[in-house]
Design a protein around this nucleic acid. Structure first.
Length: 224
DNA sequence: GCGACAG
DNA sequence: ATCTTGTCGC
């Protein structure tokens, strides 16, 4: 199973060139749907699972879901996560009857060595507004934001801003938010904050995570 | 060369 | 990411 990392890196430079930080998100009063995507798999299995859950705004009710189960083609290689997970998200999007106005991805957007993290990769390939929502830092430096919900600090890589570190809940570890595609830093962070109700993670991601794990667990029982 | 390293 | 129970703190 030999993959040409050089080719993958070149593909990322291509993705990065197409990324735009110009905001394409509709006005808040016209925002109706936001999706969350998540991928999951069993320890030594070649099978992976993914789900996208679309929520309505501003009430955050689930209006549609889609999930897939397929072979994992790549191992996890830091910096190349998108090549492993994008195929799953692509299938989920194809199975949806509606296309969410924005999609939140579990990982970084432009906060990546080559500005081509999972969210940016998905955004460019699917031509959809995406936001990278990561639970830990990958590259860049930052100052710890204040402990109150809503506090924000910048994520910097070599003098350049690549994302924001956002406290989405009091006294809880912050989230690392970066634009994926067709959105700016401020809008991305504000949307994420508006989607975080009682928990650290935004509702679309929580719903997608819950669904994909449900499916993964029942697959184990089904196979044994 | 060494250590770090989204999920 | 996954393997896993209780436990400390707001």
């Amino acid at each position: 199973m030999k993959w040409n990392i050089d080719a993958l890196r070149e593909k990322q430079h291509e993705i990065a060139r197409k990324v735009t930080l110009t905001n394409h998100l509709p006005e808040w009063n016209l925002l109706r749907t936001v999706g969350g995507a998540d991928v999951s798999f069993n320890r030594f299995s070649k099978i992976g699972f993914a789900a996208i859950v679309v929520l309505s705004l501003p009430d955050l009710q689930v209006i549609e879901t889609s999930s897939v189960e397929q072979r994992l083609e790549l191992p996890y290689i830091p910096g190349y996560l998108a090549f492993r997970e994008w195929p799953f998200i692509h299938q989920c999007l194809k199975n949806l009857s509606i296309r969410p106005q924005a999609l939140i991805c579990d990982g970084h957007g432009i906060a990546h060595p080559r500005r081509a993290g999972l969210a940016s990769h998905v955004g460019v390939e699917e031509d959809i507004i995406t936001i990278g929502c990561a639970k830990s830092v990958f590259v860049g430096e930052y100052m710890e934001p204040d402990s109150q919900r809503g506090s924000i600090s910048n994520l910097i890589l070599k003098e350049e801003k690549i994302g924001e570190v956002v406290r989405t809940k009091n006294n809880v570890k912050p989230l690392f938010i970066s634009p994926g595609h067709k959105i700016d830093f401020h809008t991305a962070t504000q949307l994420i904050l508006s989607l975080c109700r009682r928990y650290r993670l935004p509702e679309p991601i929580r719903e997608a995570h819950a669904l994909v794990n449900r499916i993964r667990i029942e697959h184990i029982c089904r196979v044994e």
